[in-house]
C-alpha cells in the first residue's frame, strides 16, 4: 500500500533558515547547517526548500561541520542531495521555464510555483508540458476573509480575491501534479492545521494534497493524516526544536498505526552495509 508522507519544509530567507509566523515575522535560527542536517534526516519522506528572500543576497554562516561553502539555496540543495537520497522540491521566485530548468539541474526533483501562477496563467500548463506534471507542485497560500478562503500571493501580502475552490480547480486543470496548501492564519501559531480549510477543499482535490501551517505538536500530524484526501503532512518550525525530531515524529505516527513508512534512523555505520 502507498504510504502517506511526512515532509519537513526549510524556509530560507536571504541565506538564513528562518521560522515564520503568519507570514510576517521571521526568526532567524542559529546554525543553518545543523538545521539542514536535522531536517534532512532519512526519516523524512521528502524535503521542501522554500526561498522566501526579498532579494538574491545570501550570506550563509559556514565552516561548521566541514560542509562546503554554501553560497545560495541551490548550492544547499545540491549539497543535501549528495547525502540524502530522497525527493527534493524547491520553491520561491520561479517565474520562467528557465528558472525551473536551473533548479532541476541543481538536483531538485520538483519545483513549487506560487505567485507566478497568478501573474502568468499559462506557466503551470507550459511547465507541466515541458517537465511533466509530476514535477510541478502548486503552492497555495490561503487566508480566511469573512466566510471564504482566499488565495494570497507575494508571500501572503496580496489578496488575489480568488476563492480557494476556483483556484484549486484551475491549477489542477492546468497540470499541477501536487498541491501544497498553506494556511496563513495558522502559520507559526502552533495550534494545529486549519481543519475548516481542510474540510472545505475535500471535494476539490484530484491530485495528492500536502498540507502545511500550524503544527504545534506531533499529534497535529496524526489529525492531518486521518483525512482521506490528505496525502502528506508538512511543517517547518516544529522540527527545529530538537535533534532527530523528524525521526521522533515519524516513530510516534508509526507506532500509532498510521499509514506511513517505518522511520529509518540513518547513521554512518549503516553506510558500510551499502557498499
Amino acid at each position: 500500500m502507498k504510504k502517506k508522507r511526512l515532509i519537513p519544509i526549510l524556509l530560507l530567507q536571504n541565506g538564513k533558515i528562518v521560522q515564520s509566523r503568519n507570514f510576517n515575522s521571521y526568526q532567524i535560527l542559529g546554525s543553518p547547517i545543523n538545521a539542514i542536517k536535522r531536517l534532512s534526516e532519512w526519516a523524512s519522506d521528502e524535503l521542501i526548500f522554500l526561498d522566501i528572500s526579498n532579494n538574491d543576497n545570501y550570506d550563509l554562516d559556514r565552516d561548521d561541520y566541514n560542509v562546503e561553502n554554501l553560497s545560495n539555496l541551490l548550492d544547499i540543495v545540491e549539497n543535501v542531495s549528495k547525502k540524502t537520497f530522497m525527493p527534493i522540491t524547491v520553491g520561491g521566485k520561479i517565474k520562467t521555464l528557465k528558472d525551473i530548468e536551473i533548479r532541476l539541474s541543481k538536483c531538485a526533483d520538483k519545483v513549487s510555483i506560487n505567485s507566478e501562477a497568478f501573474y502568468n496563467k499559462e506557466i503551470i500548463k507550459e511547465a507541466s508540458k515541458e517537465f511533466g506534471s509530476q514535477c510541478i507542485v502548486s503552492s497555495i497560500d490561503v487566508k480566511k476573509n469573512g466566510n471564504f478562503y482566499y488565495v494570497y500571493v507575494q508571500g501572503g501580502k496580496k489578496n488575489t480575491e480568488i476563492k480557494i475552490h476556483d483556484w484549486l480547480n484551475f491549477v489542477q486543470d492546468q497540470g499541477s501534479g501536487e498541491i501544497l496548501l498553506n494556511s496563513i492564519d495558522m502559520d507559526g501559531q502552533g495550534k494545529g492545521y486549519d481543519l475548516n480549510l481542510i474540510e472545505s477543499v475535500k471535494d476539490h482535490i484530484k491530485v495528492p494534497l500536502i498540507i502545511a501551517g500550524g503544527v504545534g505538536d506531533y499529534n497535529d500530524f496524526c489529525i492531518g493524516l486521518s483525512y482521506n484526501h490528505i496525502d502528506a503532512v508538512a511543517a517547518a518550525n516544529i522540527f527545529h526544536y530538537k535533534d532527530q525530531s523528524v525521526y521522533y515524529a515519524k516513530k510516534m505516527l508509526f507506532e500509532k498505526g498510521l499509514n506511513i513508512r517505518e522511520p529509518d534512523l540513518f547513521n554512518l555505520e549503516y553506510e558500510d552495509d551499502l557498499l
Binding site: K3, K4, D45, Q134, E178, V207, P208
Partner: peptide
C-alpha cells in the same frame, strides 16, 4: 479513484 500521479513511498 486514487489520485494521480502516484507519488510517494509504496512497497
Amino acid at each position: 479513484l486514487l489520485p494521480l500521479p502516484h507519488v510517494g513511498w509504496n512497497n
